[in-house]
């Protein structure tokens, strides 16, 4: 087994375990490369099917290509796609682009709050109807007890301490100091009522692993990751007011992998193009606990 085979098999095992053990399971799909790899792993795990909904939190400030790509892939793969949003904040213009709140607060409102309330079923979920190709208000309001998230341990400090199956209490809080042991492929799949589990099948993957896997499996990713001739590309995707492209002429998988291995990005953080990280006074850490950054 080579390195990618090992990572792939372990992730598939974890995804299958979640599907078996959680009645209300969903997978977060941020449209980025990591959660798209996760989606492809799920299709492998279930031999071409994705037997649970994918949940996307739409801030309505995503780079437009991301939403087009999302809907196209959902139709092609026949995905049970759900999106949620913070309608209230958007209506009241409580956003950074509207200049009413700072970046961190904007993230909290449009992502964290929207995520929490979409997962719990308290806010409206929009579900793609594959007959019409349009989104409809979903009648399903049951809270998800298992949420598959594409975080990687190498992204930043606190995530390196994560477990594959990570318990959260009612407020989505995570107790870093007292985490369940994980060994011999046995995970925490029992949980008290009112709590839920975050499941992290990509924990062991690095950014380089992700790209090498994308190349090997020909995973469809948003073209924004490649230089379109302007000498820049996105290394990490987010909302357009807060995400800037990096200078790079990488036009394909090989170029990107080369850049990460020995080129200009070998020692530079992946999220260096994300403005909200720079504004972080500790608040971002809190947001990150929700695993949707």
């Amino acid at each position: 087994m080579n390195h990618l085979d090992k990572l792939e098999s372990k992730s598939i095992h974890i995804i299958r375990e979640s599907y078996n053990q959680f009645k209300n399971l969903c997978m977060l799909w941020s449209i980025g490369k990591d959660s798209t790899v996760l989606l492809c792993l799920a299709r492998k795990a279930f031999f071409g099917h994705v037997p649970f909904p994918l949940v996307h939190i739409d801030t309505h400030y995503k780079i437009p290509e991301m939403i087009t790509y999302r809907d196209n892939l959902a139709r092609e793969y026949k995905l049970d796609l759900i999106y949620g949003e913070n309608a209230e904040a958007l209506k009241n213009k409580q956003t950074f682009p509207d200049k009413n709140v700072n970046r961190i607060e904007c993230c909290r409102l449009l992502k964290t709050e929207a995520l929490r309330n979409t997962l719990s079923g308290e806010w409206t979920r929009y579900r793609m109807n594959h007959d019409t190709g349009k989104y409809e208000v979903s009648k399903d309001k049951e809270a998800y007890t298992g949420v598959i998230v594409g975080v990687r341990a190498d992204e930043e400090g606190s995530r390196s301490k994560e477990r594959y199956f990570s318990p959260r209490d009612k407020n989505n809080d995570w107790d870093v100091g007292d985490q369940p042991p994980e060994f011999w492929g046995q995970y925490k799949t029992d949980f008290a009522p009112g709590t839920h589990l975050r499941i992290h099948p990509l924990l062991d993957w690095t950014e380089l692993d992700i790209w090498e896997y994308i190349r090997r499996e020909d995973v469809p990713v948003v073209p924004l990751y490649f230089d379109d001739g302007t000498g820049s590309r996105y290394r990490s995707l987010g909302c357009y007011p807060c995400t800037s492209p990096v200078e790079s002429t990488a036009k394909n998988f090989d170029d990107i992998i080369e850049e990460l291995k020995s080129g200009k990005f070998a020692n530079i953080a992946e999220r260096s193009g994300r403005e909200q990280d720079k504004e972080d006074g500790g608040g971002l850490e809190e947001l990150r606990k929700d695993g949707y950054m």
Binding site: A153, D154, E155, E156, G157, S158, S160, K161, D204, T206, E207, N267, I268, A269, E270, R271, S272, D277
Partner: peptide
């Protein structure tokens, strides 16, 4: 390295 990691650099001493 741990300090740096918490500032977002992709170095991981857990591994």
């Amino acid at each position: 390295l741990k300090d740096e990691r918490s500032q977002g650099i992709t170095i991981d001493t857990a591994r």
